[in-house]
Each structure stands twice: as C-alpha cells, then as structure tokens.
C-alpha cells in the first residue's frame, strides 16, 4: 500500500452526511438500543440464584400388593430352587393369584456385587429365571428385572449370571441410567426426602416382586428382602448407613411389593454382604414366599441363628404396621421338596 493512502483525506473532501443517511443511521441505532433494552428487560431476574432445598418431589412407587385375604406365607425346604419356588407359590394359591394377564411385572433382584452366582452374594439366576418363566406363563405382558448395584452395574449383572439368565427367560434386564432416578419424598418419611429413587423403570409396571438371598450384614445385622429395597435408592445412599434401621423401615414404607421371595437355600453366615468364599455359605435349605416382607425376614433371621429381636428394623417395621415379625401367626404352609 502506498503510504500516502493511509493519510486521512482533507476535511473538506468528506461530504456531509445526507439527510437520508442520517435518518438511516439513527433508525439503526434506535432499533439496536431497543433490542438491547427489551432483551435486558426480558431476562431481568430480581431473585438471586440458589435455593438449596428446592422441593422437587415426584410421586414414588404405587402400592403393588394384592389384598385378597389369601395365605400370606409359605416356607419350603429343599435344595432345588425352581421346584421350591413352584411349590411355595402353589401353597400361596398359585402365581395366577398375583400375576394376571397383561401385567407388567418388575422383579427387584439383588445384583449388588460383581461376583459369580455360586458365591451367593446376589439373587440366584436360576431362581430369577424360573420366576420370570412363571410370570410369563401366567400371562404377564412383560417381565422386567432391575437393581442399582454397588459395583459396576454392567459387570454385576453379567458376572453374577443374572443378565444371561434373565434374557434367556424372555425377561428384560434394565441397567439403570442416570435419567431413571427421580428425586422424590416419602410421605411421612424422615430420611427419604428429595432423594433420587429408581422409579424410571417402573413406568407402566403393575406388579413388583422382590427376590433376595439371606446374608449376614455387619451393620444391619442381616440383609434380606427388606434391605434389598436399598437397591432402589440412588445418590450417595451410603449416608443412610448412619441410620440403617431407619432407612430399612422407610424403604418398607415406600415399597409395597406384590410378594417377596427370600432365598435361604444357602445363607451367607459370615463376611457379608459381599462374601467371596464358599466357606462363608451354609446350606440352610429354606425358601420363603411371602406377601409380608417383615415376616419373611423374621424367618430369615432364624437361618442366620438370630431372632427378629436382634434386628431392630423388624420390630420397628412391625410397629409401623408394615407386617408382622411373628411369622407363625400367619400360619405359613410348610412343605419339603
């Protein structure tokens, strides 16, 4: 560029703006100012950000129980889990009493740990598959299986054998995603308040069955069907260990299942709830089907050489009319397979 070109032209060479030019520029500036002003007015927010306890509360789970006055507990002894399950359900009036044509059935398993099924830290795949079969045979439109495990979810479902067993049985495995957890508050609850709960997969579900093994648990005393609902909690749920009995009772308030299956064919007597060795297991040859989780767990306690009085949450749940710890009062049918 010629250096002379960069010199400003002499003032006289700049023509004064025409009237038209002046009006155009004024209009442009006016529009720009108006746009800025209205955008500012539109976005104006006099409230400072942040209410730490913004109450977001969705409905939690509906009541899945079937109240027809039928028998509410059966105790089957044996070693063949599928046969024990069939016998146990038969004693209760058959699966048809609980699962009707067109039902969408959720099976809440315990898949907490990425360990092989034989170590007994998770729900038995054969048992879960048999239950799924029975539900489908009873006309269920779909059988879903879920849990929010402690270890890596994919690893848990695959390693404990539930994923292949469930798929082979024609049921659908739901590995929870972040979006499946919805913040909710349990009416009357002290602990489950604005807490993420695994309710997403329950959309359209009409029946809920819990299937849990009998396991030693140092903090809670034992982990059975009621503790199994812990797997419906999301977030940093480990905080609830500070009031383990309180949270188990609230979970029992939150979850009213169609029935529960407590698998004490083998029980984890020590080193629970993770186990890790066959030496931790004992053949206790018992399977319970019950519409009353408190009663089922009270019986489960005896398999661990304890009574319901050793597990404070059972007494408190009974006090809250969530079931009875005196399971004999239910006159359970007993049979051997």
């Amino acid at each position: 560029m010629n250096p002379a070109d960069s010199q400003p032209p002499p003032p006289s060479a700049v023509p004064p703006p025409s009237r038209r030019e002046f009006l155009r520029r004024t209009l442009e500036a006016g529009v720009a100012l108006a746009a800025t002003g209205s955008l500012g007015a539109w976005l104006w927010n006099r409230h400072p950000p942040g209410d730490f306890n913004r109450a977001a509360s969705a409905a939690l789970l509906p009541d899945f129980s079937v109240r027809d006055g039928g028998r509410s507990m059966s105790i089957i002894t044996g070693q063949n889990r599928p046969a024990m399950l069939r016998r146990g359900l038969e004693a209760m009036g058959g699966i048809e009493r609980f699962v009707r044509r067109g039902d969408r059935v959720m099976l809440k398993v315990n898949a907490a740990f990425a360990t092989p099924a034989i170590l007994g830290a998770t729900s038995n795949p054969e048992l879960v598959a048999e239950l799924a079969h029975l539900c489908l045979a009873a006309g269920a439109a779909a059988v879903l299986v879920t849990d929010n495990p402690i270890n890596d979810p994919e690893s848990c479902f695959n390693l404990c054998g539930l994923a292949p067993a469930v798929r082979a049985a024609g049921a659908e495995l739901i590995v929870p995603r972040a979006s499946d957890f919805v913040s909710g508050t349990l009416p009357g609850g002290q602990l489950i308040r604005n807490w993420p709960v695994l309710t997403g997969p329950f959309h359209g579900v009409t029946k809920l069955i819990g299937i849990a093994p009998v396991k030693h648990h140092n903090r809670a005393g034992a982990s059975m069907t009621m503790k199994n609902w812990y797997g419906l909690l999301g977030g940093r749920r480990n905080q609830f260990h500070q009031d383990i009995n309180g949270i188990i009772v609230e979970l029992a308030m939150m979850v009213r299942p169609t029935f529960v299956v407590l698998d004490g064919t083998t029980s984890m007597m020590t080193n629970g709830p993770t186990g890790g060795s066959l030496a931790d297991l004992k053949a206790t040859n018992t399977l319970v089907v019950s519409t009353d989780p408190v009663a089922a767990d009270a019986l489960g306690a005896t398999l661990l050489d304890r009574t319901w009085r050793d597990l404070p949450y059972l007494g408190r749940a009974a006090e809250c009319a969530l079931g009875t710890a005196d399971f004999e009062s239910l006159r359970p049918e007993r049979a051997a397979v």
């Binding site: 360990t115 903090r219 500070q242 709830p273 993770t274 890790g276």
Partner: peptide, 16 residues
C-alpha cells in the same frame, strides 16, 4: 460418634 462401616460392608475380599 456416627454409625457407618460402609467400607466394611463393601470390602470384597474374604475374610474381609
């Protein structure tokens, strides 16, 4: 003075 032992619960080796 708060009960907890989540670490003990989850320790995967046996004996813990």
């Amino acid at each position: 003075q708060r009960p907890c032992i989540v670490c003990e619960e989850n320790c995967p080796v046996t004996p813990k």
